[in-house]
């Protein structure tokens, strides 16, 4: 049953007429055409669909649109600065080659941003454990962990994180 749901996506306020039991990932990809958020397993296992809800990582295939009424959603499209440059996390993934096929990368980056936001001084081991909700079937994770460590330095230098 369609009803108005107010929320903000990537800093823009929107009120949508939609079924509250629409999956958040379906809403982002099919209604807003924000296809950077990927659907991997569709069973809340792989984390490819990770977005930020109120600044905290969540699997958007496992959240209903009604649940995020009034919330601020950030997708991979929303983290790049207005000048089109890369977010420090994206730049670090590029520099460290923290991807191969790239399918898991948007979710990995959103999770890693949450991780560093709440744990700016994480060790390599803590980063590895902290990304347990995101699966990558290509890399073996080594370069992903290196990328997050590099991003941590860049984000601290830029005054981000806490």
């Amino acid at each position: 049953m369609s009803q108005p749901i107010p929320l903000s996506v990537n800093g823009k306020a929107v009120t949508v007429e939609a079924d509250p039991d629409t999956l958040l990932v379906t809403f982002l990809r099919e209604h807003l055409r924000l296809t950077g958020t990927h659907v991997g397993c569709d069973t809340a296992s792989c984390g490819a669909c990770t977005v930020l809800i109120g600044g905290r990582a969540a699997k958007s295939c496992n959240v209903l649109l009604g649940q995020v009424s009034g919330e601020a959603i950030t997708t991979i499209e929303g983290i790049t600065p207005a000048d089109g440059s890369l977010h420090p996390m994206q730049a670090a993934f590029k520099a460290c080659h923290g991807l191969q096929c790239g399918f898991c990368t948007p979710g990995m980056i959103m999770s890693a941003i949450d991780l560093l936001t709440h744990h700016a001084h994480a060790t390599r081991e803590e980063v590895r454990a902290g990304l347990e909700g995101n699966l990558c079937r290509c890399t073996g994770y080594h370069n992903i962990v290196s990328a997050v460590m590099r991003a941590a330095q860049a984000m601290q230098a830029a005054g981000g994180g806490s």
Binding site: A44, G47, I53, A57, N62, S111, D114, G130, E132, G133
Partner: peptide, 9 residues
Amino acid sequence: IGDRQVRNR
């Protein structure tokens, strides 16, 4: 419990 995303929700 679970993983970061699960613990957040």
